[in-house]
Structures are given as structure tokens and as C-alpha cells.
């Protein structure tokens, strides 16, 4: 074992080398299988399309499994959309994302909440409980940055709450930003306070964007700088009128171009939804 180090086992020791290769293969297979499981937890395209026919999801995990996740479900007149970014990426992030999706499912299916803020409050309790967080200094501060939207298709209202993550809404080429609270879903430095709920009236053709910070924090471009929120907002405004697939292609293209040969820093997730007034028969 003495040869093992940052470079891995030296090739001169065939036994160790083969073991190393076998382990690598096994890990890769495990991760591949784990990624299938993770994908199975995401809402299917047909479910999302049934609830919101015009949408796109640009999801680019950094590794085979991801700490970013998205969630869409429908209950009565309400459509729930959430986009989350768990602490870390790769396997630890993926574990957290599994917890996040499970908790969201549980909270929303139970239905005992008063709005998006209440969902986040509940989520925080679940995460704190699951990770046994009590505010001790020594404990893990893992959490989830999460944005939750509840669309009321009968009243054409949107209820939003965010844990760090904001909501961008583009109406007539004008971007409206709804900021999230500066606290995570999980234990924070300060005593828990309730998340803030934001209620907005929706108009036909409004574009809603929920995203994680993977895109804006990506280094790239000619100077190797972060992409930043300002550029990201401009990008979204520029594509907001386009059909969904076209928007996704432009965003993906922009990301690839920006990243260039740089290493992807974090998982990237951008979700866009075009809100249309429901036809009377559908309500």
C-alpha cells in the first residue's frame, strides 16, 4: 500500500493496479446506477407537460449524480414547482437531494401548509431533524438552497418563497426579480425565523425561471471570470420570447460557450415555464 498516493497505485504492482481499476469500475457502475435512481425521482416529462405544457429544463450535473434537483407536482388547482441546490455536489449532494425530494413529497402530499413559505418552514424542520441539527457548533451545517412556487391556476396567482434562491419572472421583456430569504433550508447561524412568502398576480404569457447558482458561478469567458447574475438576467430576457426548446438551446449554447475548456464547477440547473391562462374547460 505504500505506493498508493495521490497518483494512485503504481502500475509496477499489477495486483494493486488491477484492484484499483476494478474498484474504479465498480464505483463508476454504482454511480451510474445511482444516477438512474436519482433520475427516477425527478418528475417525468409527461407529468410536467400535462401541468405546464410550455417548459424547458436545462440540467447539467457536474458528475453522474447531482446535488441539484427539480420538483413539479399538481394538487387540485395548484401546481408546485421547486428547484433546489443541496450542499455539495456529487454523491453527498445527491444524498441530500434525495432527502429534499422525499420531504417535499411528504409535505405537499400531506397538505398541512399555508403557502410556499410554510413549505420551506416545514422543509427546514425535516432537514434539521434528519441531520439532527440543533445549532451546536460542531455539527454539520448542510442544507438546501431552495425556491418554491405554488401556481394557483384558478386565481392566476403565484406564491413564492426562497431559501437563498430567487425567482425571475419576465413579463413583456421586463424582468421582475423576487428574492429569496438569506437563510437555508437547514440549520443556519441564527435562530429559525419564518420564511417570507411573496404573492404575485400572474398574467398570460409570463415566463418564470427558477435556477441554481451553477450557471452564474461558472468560470469562463475570455477572462476566466464568473458568468454573474447580471449577464444571466440579460440572457434570460433575450431568450424569453422564444419557444421553449429554442430557449433551452440558447441557454445551453451560451453555457457551453462561456465554459469553454474550463472545468464545470458545480451542477447547473435552469428551469423555465411559460404561464398560460387555463381555458375555462380545463379549470
Amino acid at each position: 500500500m505504500k505506493n498508493e498516493g495521490a497518483q494512485g497505485p503504481v502500475q509496477e504492482d499489477p495486483k494493486h493496479y488491477y484492484d484499483y481499476l476494478r474498484q474504479q469500475r465498480e464505483i463508476a457502475e454504482s454511480l451510474k446506477y445511482a444516477s438512474y435512481i436519482q433520475q427516477a425521482l425527478y418528475p417525468t416529462e409527461s407529468l410536467i407537460a400535462r401541468l405546464i405544457p410550455e417548459y424547458f429544463i436545462f440540467f447539467r450535473p457536474r458528475e453522474m449524480v447531482s446535488g441539484d434537483f427539480y420538483y413539479v407536482s399538481g394538487h387540485g388547482d395548484n401546481i408546485f414547482i421547486a428547484v433546489g441546490d443541496c450542499t455539495g455536489h456529487g454523491v453527498p449532494g445527491a444524498f441530500m437531494s434525495l432527502l429534499g425530494i422525499t420531504f417535499l413529497n411528504e409535505i405537499i402530499s400531506r397538505g398541512n401548509f399555508y403557502g410556499a413559505a410554510s413549505v420551506l418552514n416545514n422543509m427546514r424542520e425535516h432537514v434539521m431533524k434528519a441531520l439532527s441539527q440543533t445549532g451546536e457548533e460542531s455539527e454539520q451545517k448542510d442544507g438546501i438552497d431552495l425556491a418554491v412556487c405554488i401556481l394557483d391556476i384558478r386565481k392566476n396567482k403565484l406564491d413564492f418563497a426562497g431559501a437563498f434562491n430567487p425567482l425571475y419572472m419576465i413579463r413583456n421583456n421586463r424582468l421582475i426579480e423576487v428574492e429569496g430569504d438569506k437563510m437555508p433550508v437547514g440549520i443556519g447561524a441564527e435562530e429559525e425565523k419564518p420564511f417570507t412568502g411573496h404573492s404575485l398576480d400572474l398574467e398570460d404569457n409570463d415566463m418564470l425561471y427558477l435556477f441554481t447558482d451553477g450557471f452564474v458561478d461558472q468560470f469562463g469567458g475570455s477572462n476566466g471570470k464568473k458568468y454573474k447574475y447580471k449577464s444571466f438576467r440579460e440572457l434570460l430576457i433575450s431568450v424569453s420570447e422564444l419557444p421553449m426548446q429554442e430557449q433551452k438551446n440558447r441557454i445551453q449554447g451560451t453555457f457551453e460557450a462561456w465554459k469553454g475548456n474550463q472545468r464545470q464547477l458545480d451542477d447547473v440547473l435552469v428551469c423555465g415555464f411559460r404561464y398560460r391562462f387555463a381555458k375555462p374547460a380545463m379549470i
Binding site: 418552514n121 416545514n122 427546514r124 425535516h126
Partner: peptide, 18 residues
Amino acid sequence: FSTIDFKRFILQQRIGIT
């Protein structure tokens, strides 16, 4: 009481309650 207020005013502890 909401869970947050229950923890803050009654339990006086930071703990996840589901």
C-alpha cells in the same frame, strides 16, 4: 403555535420538529 414559535417560546430549543 407554529412549529417555529413552539420551539422559540415554549420548547426554547433548536431542533427539527416534523
